[in-house]
């Protein structure tokens, strides 16, 4: 019975992941390996970026028409924010589908999302990355790592640490069924600051982490150390988010640009 329950939980979480995220690793890898009929539009300089802005991300940029005449760094930062807001929305729906999450104290649900969403975003972003760049605009565009690096500081410093994390993370060769449980484990984390019902969340977390361990053993029988390696990634993600939060504050100041209200809520008093 216990094994059946564990398999059911893994399945429920995987189904919620497939249902709620518009992009996943399988889709991203199909595009990145050139197995789609139309390859993504490659953004590698100012000219290709402008073309992409007029077509692929017209909606995003259009929503802030005032940005039209702003510098490229500010426009890219704005696009990153739009994508983050959308993923936070998807993550919230995903979290609600994780058994037990919705019955938690509402304050604790807020806390878990506040601290978990960016770790989850960077874990999932790796699916859209290879060593040369990143899929954007639902996979219709590909922005090169070199172009992002060529931008003015501090915006140029924003993506490189995520690429470095992604290359190591992608080497673990997780699939979407593994990632679904990993993202659930990130969100249901008992040591976030300010949690009220720690015991309840720790129980949920233990359950999910145990299911993740069993799932990895079955799904990757040749990699016996995958589970401890993934636990280490949880710590790496926390560090990545701390650095990112500091950088965002710097960008906000130096670029005199605004932050989406949802992201403001998340970053405020975070670390």
């Amino acid at each position: 019975t216990q094994l059946a329950d564990q398999k059911t939980l893994a399945r429920q979480i995987y189904d919620a992941y497939l249902k709620n995220f518009s992009m996943n690793k399988a889709k991203a890898r199909t595009i990145l390996t050139g197995k789609t009929s139309t390859p993504p539009f490659v953004i590698h300089d100012m000219e290709t970026l402008q073309l992409a802005e007029q077509t692929l991300v017209a909606k995003m940029v259009g929503s802030a028409g005032a940005l039209k005449d702003r510098e490229v760094e500010v426009r890219i930062f704005h696009c990153c924010q739009c994508t983050s807001v959308e993923t936070v929305t998807e993550l919230t729906e995903f979290a609600k589908s994780v058994p037990g999450f919705s019955s938690l104290d509402l304050n604790d649900q807020v806390t878990l999302l506040k601290y978990g969403v960016y770790e989850a975003i960077f874990a999932m972003l790796a699916s859209c990355m290879n060593k040369d760049g990143l899929l954007v605009a639902y996979g219709s565009g590909f922005i090169t790592r070199e172009f992002l690096k060529s931008l003015r500081r501090p915006v140029s410093d924003m993506m490189e640490p995520k690429f470095q994390f992604a290359m190591k993370f992608n080497a673990l060769e997780l699939d979407d069924s593994d990632l679904a449980l990993f993202v659930a484990a990130i969100i249901c984390c008992g040591d976030r600051p300010g949690l009220v019902n720690v015991t309840h969340i720790e129980e949920m977390q233990e359950n999910i982490v145990h299911v993740l361990q069993l799932h990895l053993l079955a799904n990757h029988p040749d990699d016996t150390f995958l589970f401890p390696k993934l636990l280490q990634k949880l710590a790496d993600l926390r560090e990545l988010v701390t650095e990112h939060a500091q950088l965002v504050q710097e960008i906000k100041k130096t670029e005199d640009t605004s932050l989406h209200p949802l992201l403001q809520e998340i970053y405020r008093d975070m670390y």
Partner: peptide, 21 residues
Amino acid sequence: LKEKHKILHQLLQNSTSPVDL
């Protein structure tokens, strides 16, 4: 906490499209 995180709170209570945010 809920007061300081109105949008997150709202997302948790209903399905809100990011377009509406």
